[in-house]
């Protein structure tokens, strides 16, 4: 039996109130298993990033329920004050741009979250070097992001997302700035990570060419999650 990594029930998100009320998500319900790569897609402004941020404990929903792994983190209100701790311990984030901290080296960028989680400098650096080797950029461990190419930076940012051994990886349009070949490479890499690390990976994307590489596609249209179909 598959193990649920993300479970969302009747999630609603509105902005504003009264006459200026804007309904963005209206009763989204879905789940994502561990080891699964899911594409989250919708027209521009339809709320896919908002949904991603709600799953990532960044944006507070209006109502509904969110489970991350076995833990219910939201039930019409956050069930913990430390949503940041949840992000730090359970979630890895990948962005459209690499968003590495420019004043830290590659190694420091990758070890920052684990060290904040209490992992020793020695252990976190050992784990980080293994990740950097996995992404074939261990020779750039002491370089800063300014000294790397775009592709290398993107690989470092993926390594950073994995450094805290997350249960979930949330990627916000990670292929938007890449050509088709590199986009395919990145999505294939994320699929491999999902399987190898047994994590749920959610990627926000407009690029239909990426859909065949994903296990499932979640579409949002007219505020509703209208389909959660298995990719075949």
């Amino acid at each position: 039996m598959s193990e649920k990594s993300i479970r969302v029930e009747n999630l609603i998100k509105n902005f504003g109130e009264g006459e200026s009320l804007v309904e963005v998500i209206d009763g989204a319900s879905f789940s994502i298993d561990k080891g699964e790569l899911v594409a989250l897609t919708a027209p521009s402004g339809a709320g896919k990033t908002t949904l991603l941020m709600m799953i990532g404990c960044v944006e507070e929903p209006t109502s509904g329920t969110i489970y991350l792994g076995d833990e219910k983190v939201y039930d019409n209100k956050w069930l913990t004050k430390e949503t940041r701790k949840i992000r730090r311990e359970k979630i890895g984030f990948i962005f459209q741009a690499h968003h590495l901290i420019p004043f830290l080296t590659v190694l420091e960028n990758v070890t920052l979250v684990p060290q904040t989680n209490g992992i020793s400098k020695k252990d976190s650096e050992k784990d980080a070097m293994e990740l950097l080797k996995y992404f074939e950029i261990s020779d750039k461990a002491n370089a800063t992001s300014a000294q790397l190419s775009g592709g290398q930076n993107q690989r470092v940012s993926i390594a950073r997302a994995l450094a805290n051994k997350p249960e979930i990886i949330l990627a916000d349009e990670p292929t938007a700035a890449l050509d088709l070949k590199r986009s395919v490479d990145v999505v294939k890499m994320l699929k491999k990570i999902a399987v190898d690390q047994n994590v749920a990976v959610v990627i926000v994307t407009h690029d239909e060419a990426m859909y065949p590489l994903c296990d499932r596609i979640i579409k949002i249209e007219n505020k509703k999650v209208i389909s959660t179909e298995v990719n075949s």
């Binding site: 940041r84 979250v113 904040t116």
Partner: peptide
Amino acid sequence: IMKLIGIP
């Protein structure tokens, strides 16, 4: 970014 990735 640091706040998003969970840095206190």
